[in-house]
C-alpha cells in the first residue's frame, strides 16, 4: 500500500474531475464512482500515486471522471494494461474498472489469468447484465430467458450466465466480494478493503441499467447483507457461492497468496550483458 503517509487529507470530492459523465440518469455507475472516490479518500491515497484503468463500455468511461492518473484503453484489455502499469510501477495504487461485457466476454481470458497471476491491484466490475453502450444486447451475465433485445432470440439466449465470483475464486483471486451500487457507503468500504488486501482483489458491483433493464430497479428490494463473515477457506467460499441466490452482499473470501512481483533487483551493466557474446 502506498500513499497513506501523506500529510494532506483528501475528501471524495478531490478525486472527482469536472468532466460530466456520459451515463444515463439513474445509472448505478454514478454511485460506484462515488464509492471509488470515497474509498480513495478513506485510504487517503495521493491522486498522483493512484491510477484508474479501464477498457470500453459505459462504466469504462470512469477514469476521465476521476482526478487520478488514468488509462481508458480498448475493449476487454483493461486488466492487461493495469497489470503492466502495476508491474512496471509497484509504487502506484492501481484500480481497474469496467463492465460485465468488457470483463467477462471480450476480456474473459484476461480475467482468468489476472486472478491466477495475482498482481497487487483491485478490479471493480460494474455488472448490469447488459451491453449498454451499444444499446441493450445480452452480456455473459444476462439471464438466459431475457429477450428484450433486438439481438436476442425470442425466449432469450438460453445460455447459462457467467458466475464471476465462482470463476474468480476457482481461478485463484485473492479477495472476492459482491456489492450493490444502491449502497454506496457499503461499496466504498468493501473497495477500500479490496485495495488494502495484497494481491488481486475482485469486487463485483451490481449496478443497475434502468435504461435497458428497467426490471433491475427491483434489485434494491432483494439485496441483503451476507448473513456470514468473509472466509479464508476457499472451499467454504465456493460452497456459499454455489448455494446462494446471488443477492448476498459483502466480502466473501480473503486469501493469503503472495502477490506476483517479477521486478528484478539486479544492477548489471550493459558491458556485463555484452561480455556473453564476445569471443
Amino acid at each position: 500500500m502506498s500513499g497513506t503517509n501523506c500529510a494532506l487529507t483528501y475528501t471524495a470530492k478531490d478525486y472527482k474531475s469536472d468532466t460530466k459523465p456520459v451515463w444515463c440518469p439513474g445509472c448505478g455507475d454514478y454511485s460506484v464512482l462515488s464509492s471509488i472516490t470515497k474509498a480513495f479518500a478513506d485510504l487517503n491515497l495521493e491522486p498522483h500515486k493512484t491510477s484508474v484503468v479501464s477498457g470500453i463500455g459505459c462504466s469504462s468511461r470512469i477514469p476521465a471522471y476521476t482526478t487520478t492518473y488514468g488509462f481508458h484503453s480498448i475493449h476487454g484489455r483493461a486488466l492487461a494494461v493495469g497489470a503492466g502499469l502495476k508491474l512496471a510501477r509497484p509504487d502506484m495504487t492501481v484500480l481497474v474498472a469496467g463492465g460485465d461485457g468488457d470483463g467477462f466476454s471480450i476480456g474473459g481470458n484476461h480475467f482468468l489469468h489476472a486472478c491466477r497471476r495475482n498482481v497487487d491491484m483491485t478490479y471493480v466490475v460494474m455488472d448490469n447484465r447488459v451491453y449498454g453502450m451499444t444499446k441493450g444486447q445480452p452480456s455473459p451475465t444476462t439471464e438466459p430467458d431475457w429477450d428484450a433485445s433486438a439481438m436476442a432470440p425470442p425466449g432469450g439466449t438460453g445460455m447459462t450466465p457467467f458466475n464471476p465470483l465462482a470463476i474468480a475464486l476457482a481461478a485463484g483471486a485473492n479477495f472476492v466480494a459482491r456489492c450493490f451500487s444502491g449502497d454506496p457507503n457499503g461499496t466504498a468500504a468493501v473497495i477500500a478493503e479490496a485495495i488494502k488486501h495484497p494481491g488481486f482483489s475482485f469486487v463485483a458491483v451490481m449496478s443497475p441499467c434502468i435504461t435497458f433493464r428497467e426490471e433491475q430497479r427491483e434489485w434494491k428490494n432483494v439485496v441483503r447483507p451476507s448473513p456470514v463473515e468473509s472466509t479464508t477457506d476457499a472451499a467454504q467460499a465456493a460452497k456459499r457461492l454455489m448455494t446462494d441466490d446471488g443477492f448476498n452482499m459483502g466480502i466473501l473470501y480473503r486469501g493469503h497468496r503472495t502477490p506476483y512481483s517479477p521486478k528484478g533487483a539486479g544492477q548489471a551493466s550493459l558491458a556485463d550483458l555484452e561480455a556473453e557474446f564476445a569471443l
Partner: peptide, 18 residues
C-alpha cells in the same frame, strides 16, 4: 531482471501488447 527490469509471460498476445 539483471538490469532491474520486468519480464512477464502473458496469457496471449493481446495481453502482451496491452
Amino acid at each position: 531482471p539483471k538490469v532491474g527490469g520486468v519480464f512477464v509471460q502473458a496469457e496471449d498476445e493481446l495481453a502482451s501488447i496491452n
